[in-house]
């Protein structure tokens, strides 16, 4: 049983750290809100500890298939123009992005 007023399931710092990992730029208000909202989901996730899972294998694939492979045969690629037409920015038939190490 958790103590009343025990530590929240999730700290504000953790939320800020996770946002960085997830490449999301959250406002202070969003961080506050998510700390509460995600905290309550994580709280319920602790219910999972009520189940004895000792030695239970994880399910990664419901159908349990193995060794699904294809032949090593070249198939046509798709039209470059069609692909590049959807890109935000293009130069010399390549995808253009800001510099890797520009100022933050």
């Amino acid at each position: 049983m958790a103590e009343p007023d025990s530590q929240p399931a999730l700290s504000r710092d953790e939320v800020a750290h996770v946002a960085k990992l997830a490449l999301l730029d959250l406002t202070e208000e969003e961080i506050d809100l998510f700390t509460v909202q995600l905290g309550s989901v994580i709280e319920t996730a602790h219910d999972m500890n009520n189940l004895d899972l000792e030695g239970v294998q994880p399910t990664h694939h419901p159908l349990g298939l193995t060794n699904v492979v294809r032949e090593d045969v070249v198939r046509p690629s798709i039209d470059r123009a069609e692909v590049l037409s959807q890109a935000p920015d293009v130069e010399d038939d390549r995808f253009k992005v800001p510099p890797a190490l520009g100022e933050d």
Partner: peptide, 10 residues
Amino acid sequence: GTNTAAMNMA
């Protein structure tokens, strides 16, 4: 974004 990571995040 001024760099790739900043653009990704924005």
